[in-house]
């Protein structure tokens, strides 16, 4: 942890951070506990059981939904982050671009429309142009609303970055692409990573827009979960959520080990 003799150290910030992570993980602990519940209720404890994991693994619908969600989130994240990075670079580094605030406004436009409106509008639009690409429809819709979530952290990072390094690099290599590849992008990486992660979780969680633009055979996990309206959430959902959590923890651990090796 940060040393007290570090000049940047501020008292209390470590406790806030600890509180923050407790706050973030408290519901998850409950979630995991109740995935082992014996009864059908997702909120009243009645004994330990692995029944719901067995059920979740035997449930084709829930698995298909999970797979669809992951595919969509990965593609939408890649598309949105790539486009957002290019746009952010152009807007903050290219002096030839005029009307920057107009372009900036267009980029965060998807944020400003209530989701249900985007959903209905996109559905109407897709059917007007006869777009029918299966999962592709959802990927397009997700890429659109993920752009601002990817763009804002990247832009924030670029605005805070020291341009003198890039200027020096241009003197050294005197090639725009080398500067971009060797200096700007590596410096920008934390912003890109933040943006990509935001885009990913936004896509993974989206319900209304997906529900509206989904075609036959493209049910995603949120649709599956949300439409349990009539009967309530079962521990089966907790079980599949716990499995997903496990997967993400694995990824984090792998990332950590890779990082350490370096």
């Amino acid at each position: 942890m940060t040393q007290k003799n570090d000049i940047r150290w501020l008292p209390g910030f470590n406790w806030v951070t600890l509180f923050f992570f407790l706050f973030l993980y408290l519901p998850l602990i409950i979630l995991v506990v109740f995935s082992f519940n014996a009864s059908r209720s997702a909120t009243v404890w009645s004994g330990f059981s692995l029944e719901w994991y067995v059920k979740a693994f035997a449930n084709d619908d829930i698995q298909r939904a999970t797979k669809n969600s992951l595919i969509i989130a990965v593609f939408a994240t890649v598309f949105a982050t790539t486009m957002a990075t290019m746009a952010a670079l152009a807007l903050s580094r290219n002096r030839a671009v005029k009307n920057k605030s107009l372009f900036g406004g267009v980029l965060i436009l998807p944020l400003m429309v209530p989701e249900i409106v985007t959903a209905v509008a996109t559905l109407t639009f897709f059917s007007a142009i006869g777009l029918s690409l299966g999962l592709g429809n959802i990927i397009i819709a997700h890429s659109v609303f993920c752009i601002p979530f990817a763009y804002l952290p990247i832009r924030a990072r670029l605005d805070g970055m020291d341009e003198s390094l890039e200027a020096a690099a241009r003197d050294l290599y005197s090639n725009k692409w080398d500067t971009l590849r060797l200096i700007t992008l590596p410096l920008l990486m934390p912003g890109i990573l933040s943006g990509a992660m935001l885009a990913f979780i936004i896509s993974l969680d989206d319900f209304i827009i997906t529900l509206m633009v989904a075609e036959a055979g493209s049910t995603t996990l949120p649709i599956y979960i949300y439409s349990l309206v009539r009967v309530g959430i079962t521990p089966e959902v907790n079980a599949i959520s716990t499995v997903l959590l496990g997967v993400s923890v694995l990824i984090v651990t792998a990332a950590y080990l890779v990082e350490k090796k370096k």
């Binding site: 519901p27 998850l28 959902v237």
Partner: peptide, 27 residues
């Protein structure tokens, strides 16, 4: 390297559906 781990830790909860997490707050 610790920074990146923290960042990933922040996004882990979001692998769980929002509705499910909100239900946990009810508990």
């Amino acid at each position: 390297e610790r920074r990146n781990i923290f960042l990933l830790l922040i996004t882990i909860p979001f692998w769980t559906n929002l509705l499910v997490r909100t239900y946990c707050w009810i508990l």
